[in-house]
């Protein structure tokens, strides 16, 4: 009797925790949808802001976020995958490599505002790129690099050693084996990591605060050296600056809804790919 009673208490407690977590999650989504949905319209998505941010659309911020995300992936993808391949396939097992792995894992824990300051110092000032898409993309690229490396690393390690042996035993070189067997087999896992990092990049504010984003632009960015508007920074700006807080808050919720939608979209694609990968190959990951 006593045992069953304590079991019931245990289950109730666990259920309560689960319920609270889900409640928070859904109330956040609900809150943003309810407050944001009213301003969403075709014009909101496709037009320039008007009347000191109190009317019009957020098109340049959406476009800016797109450019920054794309730019960061272009820079981080080759670096991250190359780094993962080196660590998994080429590096001798030594303490130097352990230090490298340790550093990469630590990099993932550095607060994003620190990356922002780094970007400001190196890309904006020292290399002279100015506040621009280029500086912002590079800063975001460094931010997501650890994510891409660890996702690629795991995906590559999940490729069974027996496939490498099969390839080598047919007279393939190590490079052919990596290119034709290891990477294609690991690709879905790597893709999952990339898409998750896209979601992360799209939502980051601090790294672009000093390196890329501005509150308002008259038109769309013209080159990679242009400043841009971006969704997360736009929300921040609408809530902290400007003269008409009442009208701005509504638009900020609209932006938040769009941003949330984009990030959820990316995550769903990642989950879809991961499941498909499991079904076809049956290998872990």
């Amino acid at each position: 009797m006593k045992k069953e009673f304590s079991q019931k208490i245990g289950f109730s407690f666990i259920s309560l925790c689960m319920f609270l977590t889900v409640l928070f999650l859904f109330s956040i989504i609900f809150f943003i949808v309810v407050n944001g949905i009213r301003v969403i319209s075709w014009e909101f998505l496709t037009q320039m802001p008007k009347e000191a941010m109190t009317a019009g659309g957020i098109a340049p911020a959406i476009v800016g976020t797109f450019y920054l995300t794309l730019g960061s992936i272009i820079f981080s993808l080759p670096l991250g995958i190359a780094c993962a391949i080196y660590l998994c396939e080429y590096s001798p097992k030594s303490y130097v490599v352990n230090i490298i792995r340790f550093s990469i894992n630590n990099l993932a824990g550095v607060p994003s505002v620190v990356f922002g300051l780094f970007g400001l110092t190196i890309f904006v000032k020292y290399l002279g790129f100015g506040v621009s898409i280029l500086s912002g993309s590079l800063t975001l690229a460094i931010l997501v690099l650890p994510l891409i490396i660890s996702a690629s690393n795991e995906a590559i390690l999940a490729v069974p050693q027996s496939l490498r042996e099969a390839s080598l035993s047919l007279g393939a070189t190590k490079w052919q084996t990596i290119k034709k067997v290891v990477l294609p087999t690991a690709l879905p896992g790597i893709l999952t990591g990339i898409i998750l990092s896209i979601g992360r990049t799209a939502g980051e504010t601090a790294p672009i605060l000093f390196t890329a984003a501005v509150f308002y632009l008259k038109g769309y960015p013209k080159s990679i050296f242009s400043e841009v508007m971006a969704l997360p920074y736009h929300i921040y700006a609408l809530m902290t600056e400007g003269l008409y807080p009442d009208k701005q808050v509504k638009i900020a919720f609209g932006c938040a809804l769009i941003l949330l939608f984009l990030v959820l979209l990316f995550s769903s694609v990642a989950i879809y790919l991961r499941n498909k990968h499991k079904n076809i190959y049956g290998y872990g990951n």
Binding site: S162, S167, S169, L170, G171, K180
Partner: peptide, 30 residues
Amino acid sequence: VRRRVGMVFQKPNPFPKSIFENVSYGLKVN
């Protein structure tokens, strides 16, 4: 050496590719 001395392993280890690509793999890498 490995092209001249082939190996079949304990557990079947086909590549996660098509049947055709599996067999043609060795020719292509050579």
